[in-house]
């Protein structure tokens, strides 16, 4: 399964990853190698098999509708790179 440079650039864009010119060739080669390895699965007969999303055969547990959290903005924003007036600042979002 060989990927083209364009394929890699497309998924890199979906993943919001900049791939430097110095990285791209190696990335294309290694991803092609990995996808070649996983392509083995194509041969497996899975007709009528239920996909397994989870190892646990349990149902979702529900939480009572109670407010258990209080304001810790100051503490939580200590990890934030750029905060103004309690808002997380980012470059202009164009709509």
């Amino acid at each position: 399964m060989a990927l083209s440079r364009q394929d890699v650039e497309h998924i890199a864009d979906l993943a919001r990853l900049e791939i430097g010119d110095d990285e791209i060739a190696d990335m294309v080669a290694k991803l092609s190698q990995i996808l070649g390895m996983v392509a083995e699965l194509g041969a497996a007969d899975t007709s009528g098999v239920e996909p397994m999303a989870h190892p646990l055969e349990m149902a979702q547990r529900l939480r009572p509708d109670e407010v258990t959290e209080s304001d810790h903005r100051e503490l939580y924003q200590q990890n934030a790179p750029d905060v103004v007036d309690g808002l997380y600042r980012v470059p202009k979002v164009i709509e």
Partner: peptide, 14 residues
């Protein structure tokens, strides 16, 4: 072809 297939094979392995 990939993710769904893998989930099915995961079932076979289990």
């Amino acid at each position: 072809a990939y993710y769904l297939k893998a989930q099915k094979v995961r079932q076979l392995i289990a």
